[in-house]
Amino acid sequence: MPPLSTQDVAEIALLARLHLEPEEAEQMRLELGAILEHFTQLTAVDTDGVAPMTHAMSTELRLRLDVVEPSLTVAEALAAAPKRDGDLIVVPAILPGNEP
């Protein structure tokens, strides 16, 4: 596996909304690279004939009844909001409709 490039780190940082100084990016490149290196060990395992799985346990999804439970109070819900305007959370302007 080729080592992680500076460009790879820049893209991951953008996706994670992290601002990295050049020396931080370099440190991250080495640390992330080591983690990926560690996981490449898995490629040594022979998985021929093993069905792909996404969960370690073969359980099924548990379902709940459609019953309304008490909501948090507005005060509780907004306790961690950095900024409020009345009962609304205030964030820096986002472009209308630019949702994914």
């Binding site: 305007d85 609304l88 959370i89 205030v90 964030v91 820096p92 302007a93 986002i94 209308p96 949702e99």
Partner: peptide, 11 residues
């Protein structure tokens, strides 16, 4: 999201 000028409000 409710867009109000320089900020946005979230409900």
């Amino acid at each position: 999201n409710l867009h109000v000028g320089a900020v946005s409000h979230v409900d």
